[in-house]
């Protein structure tokens, strides 16, 4: 199975690539978004700002949207999850628009949120299988889907409750960093890949 990590050029994909690795998996890091869309499973990592990542996405945006519509599984992490929405208050540019809605700033005294936080109200069995109850966050922005039924797990920073994860079929977005959330986080990645490879 070919797994492709779209590299926006913002760096540090070491832990993520290592977390994705497994028997029979061919992991590629691909800076060209159109080429990245030709894969068995696409990963949108979580480093950088919305505007710069959206700009990098432009030449392959349609190819990626088509691939996801055709059923290519996709995991979006942090900024990668935010790129699955229409637009962001962080900066200009168009996301993939898989989930109708916008990305908004955290409403809290302490922004960015940096650290471990509880993940609650998980409805997707992925979370129980990974035994993921806490996860590591490093974000100033969160997603606000038009349809709250897309949300499969929640977290709260101070008093601001926000989606920890959204899912639409084979497309999964997580606001936290599973590749930095120790064993349960790595397990969540493996469970998703295994589920989608089946």
């Amino acid at each position: 199975m070919r797994i492709t990590v779209f590299d926006y050029g913002a760096g540090n994909l070491h832990s993520l690539v290592k977390a994705l690795a497994g028997a029979g998996r061919d992991i590629r890091v691909e800076p060209d978004p159109a080429a990245a869309a030709r894969t068995d499973l696409l990963v949108l990592p979580g480093v950088g700002s919305f505007a710069s990542a959206a700009a990098r996405l432009v030449p392959g945006r349609d190819a990626m949207r088509r691939a996801l519509a055709d059923g290519v599984p996709c995991l979006g992490i942090c900024l990668g999850m935010q790129l699955m929405f229409d637009a962001s208050d962080e900066g200009p540019g168009a996301g993939l628009g898989i989930f109708p809605g916008r990305v908004r700033r955290l409403r809290a005294r302490r922004v960015p949120q940096i650290g471990w936080n509880d993940v609650t109200d998980a409805t997707d069995p992925l979370f129980a299988r990974a035994a993921l109850r806490q996860a590591y966050y490093a974000n100033s922005f969160v997603c606000a889907p038009d349809d709250p039924r897309a949300v499969i797990a929640w977290s709260a920073h101070e008093t601001d409750r926000f989606p920890a994860a959204v899912r639409a079929g084979r497309v999964l977005g997580v606001q936290f960093h599973p590749e930095k959330s120790s064993e349960p986080g790595v397990c969540l990645i493996h469970e998703f890949v295994r589920e989608e490879a089946a």
Partner: peptide
């Protein structure tokens, strides 16, 4: 750092 990042899954 490089060798650690490939083996570590916490920040």
């Amino acid at each position: 750092v490089r060798r650690t990042a490939e083996a570590l899954f916490i920040p």
